[in-house]
């Protein structure tokens, strides 16, 4: 498999998308959304920006399956870290036994 050279046009587009994402996240932060939507919007924008960086700046979109597996494993282990920790912290009040 020979190497894919990402065209400049794509790099410029991603750069602009990232700048727009930053502007949007700052603007959205000053609006008082109901419930936890401020955090949800901020994280959605951050995840979107990170995905663009990983796929295009870091060439994952054009990389081998092995690289995809490594990247997926990172997300998998992060999910374990958060899921197991919060399965403890979030459930501590559930049993109202006197201890």
């Amino acid at each position: 498999m020979s190497e894919h050279i990402v065209p400049v046009r794509i790099y410029v587009t991603i750069f602009l998308v990232l700048l727009v994402g930053t502007a949007l996240t700052v603007l959205a932060a000053f609006v008082d959304f109901p419930w936890k939507f401020n955090t949800i919007i901020a994280l959605t924008i951050a995840v979107t920006k990170a995905t663009f960086v990983v796929l295009y700046f870091m060439h994952v979109r054009y990389s081998s399956r092995l690289v995809w597996v490594i990247v997926a494993s990172a997300l998998f282990w992060m999910a374990i870290l958060f899921a197991l920790t919060f399965s403890d912290y979030l459930t501590r009040g559930w049993l109202s036994v006197g201890y």
């Binding site: 996240t25 932060a29 000053f30 959304f33 401020n38 955090t39 901020a42 994280l43």
Partner: peptide, 9 residues
């Protein structure tokens, strides 16, 4: 966003 923007609203 997590450190600078969380309480602006």
């Amino acid at each position: 966003p997590l450190l600078y923007l969380l309480g602006r609203h």
